[in-house]
Design a binder for these strands. Structure first.
Lengths: 198, 198
DNA sequence: TCTGTCGGGGAACGGTCGTTCTCCGCGATG
DNA sequence: CATCGCGGAGAACGACCGTTCCCCGACAGA
């Protein structure tokens, strides 16, 4: 039934191969864009036979969707961790921007892959457009939850989410991370103006 | 020297042809993305022979750059008109977001072509990346000028620019125009908190 | 009317895309 | 040992990309 497995290394399982492909796809798509990376390059980078690649995923569209799904999950985990490490409701709201600051400072930061993918494929791929829309809607709802928890008005949530989006766009295009701190300062002002307790 | 010109219509001048090509390119690139639109489709939409198209522009890259340049000029004109129609320095700052609201409400709004192009080609085309960077830097400087005129602190300018970027991203992805009003409200709060006169 | 020239339409070219197929070598099985 | 079948490597396929080239018909000048 099973096969080959040379010398010491055990044959990689299907899950391992999927993992390798998705890691390579994430890296390549994020750095250079989706359309700019062909299946052959992905195959080389992942070290997985082309045939296996199609057997595992079915096609490029499925790989793209899965890459976005995983990025979304990772983003959610990161933001929640940063927020949960903070104390007061006000600090929990501001923790979002501290998380952005850390992200923007990473050496291979290239903006939000959802915004980038929407710019690239939003007009042609309803599937990608819907994934991006859902991701951003989920973030807005999460912020709305934090604001409600802090006793702030619903309008504040939309404002804070817009600041986060603007910081991502600005940092990506400018290539510098200071937009996070600027957005944080603006958020603090908005929170204070809403009358939330410090 | 000159040529053809059937019946009543005079032969279109080079400027007219350039105009037709750039209008078609703007429409197609904006709606569907740059890489998704081939030269053949552009030729058909513009009604200009392929040969002439290459004689006029040299290649696709030059057309893309010119489309972005013209979009940038148009944006600048629109924003300045909205701002100059406003009265007090505070109203002039808020006029930026009113202008965004009008734009977002257009039936064929598909986000900011600079943000979209950066997402699509920023990682692969240094030329496009630089055009986008310059466009956004110019907007930030313009806002900084308005803030200075109003007597506000420089930090406010960056915050207001981030709000504008976030509104564009949010409206494009959500497909709804309300982000403009939300950003406007946030901007008003930030302006007031900075102690500017109403 | 004949000839030279120029531009329009579209085929052709080399390259690359996503996807499929073919071959080959190996381990498993009787 | 002979046979089978699966999986790896990469060639092949059709489509489409940006770009170039060719051919033909129409006008200008003699």
């Amino acid at each position: 039934m099973s096969q080959v497995q040379e010398a010491g290394r055990p044959a990689p399982s299907a899950d391992e191969l999927r993992e390798r492909v998705l890691a390579a796809a994430d890296r390549l798509y994020y750095r250079r864009g989706i359309q700019a990376v062909g299946m052959d390059e992905l195959r080389t980078e992942a070290g997985v036979p082309l045939k296996r690649l199609y057997a595992l995923f079915g096609g490029k569209d499925a790989i793209v969707a899965e890459v976005l799904r995983r990025r979304g999950a990772l983003w959610e985990v990161g933001v929640r961790a940063a927020v949960d490490a903070a104390g007061t409701p006000r600090e929990r709201l501001l923790a979002v921007y501290d998380h952005l600051a850390g992200w923007f400072g990473e050496t291979d930061f290239h903006g939000c892959i959802f915004i980038n993918s929407f710019g690239e494929l939003g007009g042609c791929s309803p599937e990608v457009a819907e994934i991006v829309r859902a991701h951003k809607a989920a973030f807005q709802e999460y912020v709305a939850g934090l604001v409600a928890e802090a006793g702030g008005p619903p309008a504040l949530a939309a404002q804070l989410a817009i600041l986060a989006e603007g910081a991502q766009t600005t940092a990506a295009i400018a290539g510098t991370p200071e937009a996070a701190a600027q957005a944080r300062a603006a958020a603090a002002t908005l929170i204070d103006a809403a009358g939330l307790p410090g």
